[in-house]
């Protein structure tokens, strides 16, 4: 949005990273490390707290997913209204160009590591508002990186739950502690 890009945020805390590097170099250390990593990833995936970014129709189905019938709380997914407490952001509904900077700002306010779920056709690519339209953003992946796309207009609450399960799979497979090896 702005011309000046913000400085890159250090995503890893240096002392922890040093400890991890030392542990990784020890004999048998990587086995311990992978167990620790598994535990951390398991706990992160089992308590995803999403920021409910309800914009339009999909927000109603998102609310229905937390109501009695589908009850997302039983999977540890508890809705948050503030980005500071959230792990992932569910963008539900069409996003206008007027709203796009706000989506971006709330995404920037979320603490790392953070994920984005794009719910519905409109958030994914503009959907029914793709052609002949001057006001709708053609997909929120133009402003924030999206991890899981849930298509549907609007998706059933089950489809949203399936998207969250897909995100949990992704989190569980992440090398969370080990530094990415430069290619």
């Amino acid at each position: 949005m702005s011309a000046q890009a913000p400085p890159p945020i250090p995503t890893r805390i240096a002392p922890i990273q040093t400890a991890v590097d030392i542990l990784d170099s020890l004999p048998g250390g990587s086995v311990v490390l992978s167990k620790v990593e598994y535990l951390l990833n398991w706990s992160r995936a089992a308590s995803l707290w999403p920021l409910t970014f309800g914009l339009a129709c999909c927000a109603i189905e998102m609310m229905a997913a937390w109501a009695g019938r589908f009850d997302l709380d039983r999977m540890g997914v508890i809705p948050r209204a503030t980005p500071r407490q959230a792990d992932c952001m569910i963008v539900a509904g069409r996003c206008t160009i007027k709203m796009a900077p706000i989506v971006r700002r709330l995404w920037e306010q979320m603490p790392e590591p953070k994920y984005v779920i794009s719910m519905g056709s409109c958030a994914t690519c503009g959907g029914p508002f793709y052609y002949d339209n001057y006001s709708i953003l053609k997909g929120i992946d133009q402003v924030v990186p999206v991890d899981v796309y849930v298509p549907g207009c609007p998706p059933r609450p089950e489809a949203l739950i399936e998207g969250l399960l897909k995100l949990q799979e992704k989190i569980k497979a992440e090398p969370f502690l080990r530094r990415a090896v430069p290619a």
Partner: peptide, 12 residues
């Protein structure tokens, strides 16, 4: 059938 979420938009 409704379970079609994906990691990549090209799959859609």
């Amino acid at each position: 059938h409704y379970e079609t979420s994906t990691y990549n938009r090209a799959n859609l």
